[in-house]
Design a protein around this nucleic acid. Structure first.
Lengths: 194, 194
DNA sequence: GTCTATATCGCGATAGAC
DNA sequence: GTCTATCGCGATATAGAC
């Protein structure tokens, strides 16, 4: 194989998304990738190592695909587009969002790393909301209110798909748009041009 | 023991909350309860059976402890009190909220049951919000807006604690109050007496 | 109801040939 | 890099004595 290391990751991601990390053993992954268990252990120390690698792949994808236009100032519609792309990425790495609380508890170092990456993302996001307010797209707001709005939008972005799954709804485009509508509902009272 | 069946549940709940369902075997539970593995299997078919029983216990607790005053009309502060109690219950059954998406995927019958119970709870909640609007505590609103507000409050109630954990914050009373503040932020623009 | 003993299974992990 | 073979371990589950 050209790149066994990546093949293992791709296979693991597919199986984890389908069956959850608990139900998928290193043997299953090797089997699904068409390689021997020994070979898998040559490339990775074990399942936790593979999970860490998938987290890193998710971080990299997020950095790569989640960007605002640089040639002009951001608008509300730009943010909603970011959220759509984020929903897409979350779908590709579904197992991470399904099991995050569990996976992070089992791996303190990964938890720490995740907190840092997440904090950077959140900071950037909050700055965008602040910018919208100072640009006059949102009415002038207390700093405290801006933070609460950012927190709300962030929470929706992070857990809307989970909410759909728990309530037994499919992750259709329409369902994702309802998440976007909830976000719009949050900021609608503060828009200068409704 | 007076009631071995309940003792097993109590022990399992404690261990699941501490270590997660994956890390806790039936042997561990039996050990923690001070009984033999064989005895555990006399009372339950296995770990999935115990998990189902804990879900049912959670449903019962929720029914029992989550009630509005019947001697007068509900106010906004009543709802916030409901949310506080709900956070408390969620703390007691923490493993369910940490692993819900995973546990429900592994047990379709339980998933179905959870969807039904949850739907009933959500319906009741939505009616309360509708009532607040028709009582004039919230300004008169489109039905669609009422639904979105209910969805938002429900989402916050369900995932605020998870959000805290993912971002590495402790589940203190102060942190929970910040969740309540987010809810207030959502309805604040629609309050008739701010 | 509760125990002890045990059967079966599959996972994680490594050694050593190629 | 990749494979085959294999060991040790612990988990689930049951049988049978008390």
């Amino acid at each position: 194989m050209a790149d066994t290391k990546q093949l293992i990751l791709d296979t693991a991601l597919r199986l984890f998304n389908q069956q959850g990390t608990g139900a998928v053993s290193t043997n299953h992954i090797a089997d699904g990738a068409g390689i021997s268990p020994g070979n898998l252990y040559y490339h990775y120390r074990g399942k936790p190592d593979i999970i860490r690698a998938l987290f890193e792949q998710l971080f990299a994808q997020t950095d790569e695909r989640l960007n605002l236009p640089t040639d002009r100032l951001p608008m509300v519609s730009d943010i909603m587009m970011l959220v759509r792309i984020n929903f897409e990425i979350m779908g590709e790495y579904r197992f991470i969002y399904r099991e995050s609380l569990l996976l992070l508890r089992q791996d303190p170092a990964l938890h720490q790393r995740n907190i840092e990456v997440r904090a950077r993302g959140y900071e950037g996001f909050r700055e965008i909301i602040t910018a919208l307010s100072s640009m006059g797209i949102l009415v002038a707001l207390d700093a405290a209110v801006v933070v609460r709005l950012a927190d709300l939008l962030w929470l929706i972005g992070e857990f809307w798909l989970s909410s759909l799954e728990v309530s037994g709804q499919d992750l259709t485009d329409e369902a994702m748009e309802r998440g976007i509508e909830l976000m719009m509902q949050v900021i609608q009272p503060y828009l200068t041009t409704p």
